[in-house]
Design a binder for these strands. Structure first.
Lengths: 241, 241
DNA sequence: GCCTAGGTCCCGTCA
DNA sequence: TGACGGGGCCTAGGC
């Protein structure tokens, strides 16, 4: 059972600082609603002028700055950062920092409307279906979905170009590389499959032919053309059936 | 100036329904703190058992479900969805739905601890530097960064394989395809450059050689090997200098 | 720590 | 609307 969330309306800067500081110390999730500016410097650099936003600080070191639009935060810091709260020139200032790579996010509030510290428990994990792994299981359970006589020999087989999703043999015993995608594929997936096929042709006995099969629900025109150019094949298949 | 956020502590289900409903109607950002289960069905499908979470509904149709860990929401719905709030069996239930593709997110609260409706204004746009476009500008301003005598002829030049970042000519007049990356590159970027070079060699007079140059801060071993195999070149360069 | 590839990727842009 | 590629992508899994 979680503590009830603690909240503050229109806190003074000092009240807010104490509130956020103790929230972070208690490993609570802290949510702040107010008008702020945001500066970021690290892998890139950004500035964001004043606006009303939702800022979330998580106990794992995540920071999120959300505007009223978009699924993605306008600014953020990944897990592992160290959060810090201070007052500067009478204003509440959040800093979230990490090294490797060195990155710093600074949120300066010019008005803080509402603050929440939420100390919850969440032990449940997400159960997800319709992934690439489901597609793999489906094929391993019924290899003929690729073609009659197909025999899987290994998954995640290593090659100089990386790990192949499914490696197997066709009815004639020829090597087959299978690349799986859970959704409609574009040219990038063909490039991936190409690299694996090339690497295996080099790796196995020279001259041995290696077939490459792309498995996905569907394929774009350009990807289909690329497959044809490179002598690769396509098998339409959904991750769940 | 924004209205002060409206908030509710431990609302009854009916209070909560009214509160969320009017918040959505006012195009406010709604944030809910409580214990909930989440079901999703659409491009994939997922279930998530009970836990204490932060749920955010944005006026643009975005829905976010955040646990106390991770930068990414555990469940979400992209902008463009229609939010709906109802009471079912005495509990607050949120539905967020879209078509194309058909997707539905359902959040069932078994306890709602705190609710916020935040009606802010945010007119400022993010100013970001250190992007691939900065790298492009840098090269166009000083083409010799690629090599002495390099002359850019076009950006985003269209080919049957897609648009080339920078297309130009070297000191001997040979065609050069330049692919830009703002950060360290792996094998995928080599695949991209390969596609562009192949397409242009086919597109221009047959037999005309086309050089391919990958520009990035650095490159992985595997990518470097791939570049060598395929007769492509690498120029180390940062997006900002 | 880096590398590699998946993701309900999101997101902008352009046909 | 779909396709294509960028992203401070994030995240999981290996090595």
């Amino acid at each position: 059972m979680s503590d009830r969330p603690r909240t503050r309306d229109d806190p003074t800067t000092e009240e807010a600082r104490t509130f956020v500081s103790s929230g972070l110390e208690r490993e609570a999730m802290v949510a702040l609603f107010g008008r702020c500016r945001v500066d970021y410097e690290g892998r890139a650099a950004s500035t964001l002028g004043p606006g009303d936003r939702l800022v979330v600080l998580k106990p794992d070191g995540t920071a999120l700055v959300h505007t009223d639009e978009g699924q993605q935060p306008v600014n953020w810091q990944p897990p592992g950062c160290t959060h810090d709260v201070a007052t500067e020139d009478g204003a509440l200032v959040l800093r979230s920092e990490r090294s490797t790579p060195r990155e710093l996010l600074v949120v300066r509030f010019e008005r803080l409307d509402h603050a929440v510290a939420y100390d919850g428990t969440d032990t449940n994990d997400l159960a997800l279906t319709g992934t690439e792994d489901d597609l793999r299981q489906r094929i391993l359970a019924e290899p003929s979905l690729i073609e009659p006589g197909f025999e899987p020999r290994a998954t995640e087989r290593d090659t100089p170009a990386g790990a192949v999703d499914i490696f197997g043999a066709d009815a004639e015993g020829a090597a087959v590389v299978v690349e799986l995608k859970r959704r409609r594929v574009g040219p990038d997936a063909v490039g991936q499959l190409t690299r694996y096929v090339d690497a295996l042709e080099r790796d196995l006995h020279a001259g041995r032919e290696v077939r490459g099969v792309l498995v996905a629900p569907s394929v774009t025109d350009r990807a289909r053309r690329l497959l044809a150019e490179r002598g690769l094949e396509f098998v339409p298949l959904e991750p769940t059936g």
